[in-house]
């Protein structure tokens, strides 16, 4: 009988191995075994989105995924948004628009907002609000978060146009 599993996975592009009990969530494994504490637990039941990560590119709550399920798959966390020391445009805009107050929901919002913009580069306000409905924020009333996502989308579309 094995209660633990050695998991080989890719996290933010790095190959990582960790052993975790089979009933441990990916959230706990990321925080306590891999050291990625940017992934937050707000509820542990999939209701707040603070633990949002991508699993093979798809947005999920890491509290609703087992650590063992990450085996052979690609996990993306907030820690992976920055490339070569440069902030992702969403990170820039969140700071610029004061889209965070306490900041504990911010990693989840950023991962979810990136997943949205990857799919839909030109979302309406309503689309943004519904796409981010799985991420609770108690400080901002969401106003500046939605504006930051709108501003990012606009900038990224412009940048793409320039390039392309």
């Amino acid at each position: 009988m094995t209660d633990s599993t050695l998991v080989s996975t890719t996290i933010n592009g790095d190959s990582i191995e960790f052993a975790c009990p089979n009933d441990e969530t990916l959230l706990d494994a990321l925080r306590n075994r891999v050291g990625l504490t940017g992934v937050k637990e707000g509820c542990g039941t999939g209701d707040c989105g603070a633990c949002s990560v991508t699993l093979d590119g798809r947005l999920v709550c890491s509290c609703l995924v087992l650590g063992v399920e990450a085996s052979g798959r690609e996990v993306g966390t907030v820690e992976g948004l920055t490339t070569n020391g440069e902030l992702h445009p969403l990170q820039e805009k969140f700071i610029e628009h004061a889209a965070l107050q306490c900041g504990v929901c911010t990693p989840g919002f950023l991962v979810a907002a990136k997943a949205l913009l990857d799919k839909n580069p030109d979302p309406s306000e309503t689309e943004i609000r519904y796409a981010l409905a799985g991420n609770l924020c108690r400080c901002t009333g969401y106003d500046k978060i939605v504006r930051a996502v709108q501003a990012t989308a606009k900038d990224m579309r412009k940048a793409k146009k320039k390039k392309g």
């Binding site: 999939g46 989105g49 949002s52 699993l55 798809r58 947005l59 999920v60 709550c61 609703l64 995924v65 979810a112 997943a115 949205l116 796409a131 409905a133 799985g134 991420n135």
Partner: peptide, 9 residues
């Protein structure tokens, strides 16, 4: 059912 995050699963 649930959020986009929950939908993913």
């Amino acid at each position: 059912i649930g959020s986009d995050q929950v939908q993913g699963r």
